Amino acid sequence: MHPTSRLYRSSVVLALCAALVGAPAAAAEPAAPAPPVITADQVMPHLDALQQIADRNGGNRAHGTPGYRDSVAYVKAALDRAGFRTALHRFTRDGVTGYNLIADWPGGDPEHVVFAGAHLDSVPMGPGINDNGSGSAALLATALQVSKAGLTPDRHLRFAWWGAEEGGLVGSRAYVKDLSAADRERIDVYLNVDMAGTTREKQLWLVVDDDPAATAAFKDWFAARDLPTFDIGIGGSDHVSFDEAGIPVGGFATGVDDCIHEACDRVENVNPRTETLSTNALINAVWQLAARH
């Protein structure tokens, strides 16, 4: 090689090195915010409040009773203070007006909705604190964490507390029936939580196996903590109303206990550790799915 050629090549290499050293680093994709982790004292007070509501109103929080209306008022007030847009969706069951509580977190893509729900009503025989005050409390604690974190999700976040579920998924079916075809299309996934705090020596989380991303979010979270799960397919809670309309669903439950639909389904019938684990699993799933398109 001619000496001049060597000199030219060296100059080019040096210039490229200088350019690379001085070039700004490529902008990294912003990492999705890590989900918060809550403790029992952030979720169990909601169950205490629902128990007190039942105690003041004949021992239950069933559809059409003051106990149910006070339960809705308690959850709605907490969400309103936290900055959610809340609305009551009305329906009729047995000649009595029922109420679903719907709460939207401002922001996120309205064409892509992550929707989480739980039924709030009990049966007339008891206060329904595990079935399903536990799911309702987990859902409320999750929503309040969204507000506390000032979460700016990619997808729009919506939460709901259903009425008259114990009468046969009445509230959730009425809500889905009243949605337009376009509004149904906007829901990317519906997540349901039912009986989140069952007291059992060997706990098992029953995971709704339908939407792949939702199933993975729950199962991976439980597996990372050596918590056993069991796939239940679609199962039989409020998410069935959404599945019937062709909306992908997910969620979980912790199984039936000895006090289901009985007067003994009180706050003492909820395992605080199980309830806290369930709430954190829901928070993690909401955080994950809210950041996806």
Rank of each mutant, 00 (worst) to 15 (best):
P127F: 02
F218L: 09
A25K: 11
T86A: 07
L289K: 00
F242S: 03
E268D: 15
L277G: 06
H63I: 08
R56G: 10
G95F: 03
Q145N: 12
L179S: 03
A15C: 15
A49L: 06
S136H: 03
A87Q: 13
G135H: 02
D258P: 13
P228Y: 05
V267C: 08
L157M: 02
D178R: 10
T274A: 07
E166A: 03
A23T: 10
S134L: 06
R69Q: 11
T274P: 06
E111M: 12
W221Q: 00
Y68E: 05
G168F: 07
L79P: 02
P248G: 07
Y190N: 05
R56L: 10
Y68K: 08
L277Y: 13
S278R: 05
D220G: 01
G107S: 00
T279I: 07
V96I: 11
R200T: 15
N271P: 10
V249W: 01
S5W: 14
V189S: 04
R173K: 11
L139C: 04
I234M: 12
A149I: 01
E275C: 10
R9L: 15
Y175E: 05
R186I: 05
V170A: 08
L139W: 01
C259L: 13
I53S: 00
L16F: 08
V21W: 13
S180Y: 09
N284G: 12
E244I: 05
P3D: 06
V72C: 06
F252L: 05
G168Y: 07
L50Q: 11
D55P: 08
D154T: 14
A19Y: 09
D121L: 03
A116H: 05
R266S: 10
F252I: 05
S71W: 00
K76G: 07
G107E: 00
V146C: 01
D220W: 08
Q51T: 08
W161M: 06
P36K: 03
G236D: 14
T142V: 08
D194K: 00
T254M: 08
K76M: 10
D80G: 11
R90G: 15
A143G: 02
E244F: 10
P212G: 13
E268Q: 14
Y8S: 12
P110M: 07
A78H: 10
A164C: 01
G133S: 04
G64F: 06
R292E: 12
A245K: 04
S11K: 14
P35M: 04
L206F: 12
D104I: 06
E29L: 11
N192I: 05
I283F: 09
T274Y: 04
I283K: 01
G133H: 03
H2S: 14
I53R: 02
S147V: 01
G233F: 07
F218V: 02
G235L: 00
F230N: 14
A15H: 13
G246A: 08
A263M: 14
G128W: 01
M44H: 09
A23P: 07
A87R: 10
T86C: 06
V21F: 14
H63R: 09
G163C: 05
V113Y: 05
Q51R: 07
A138T: 04
A160G: 04
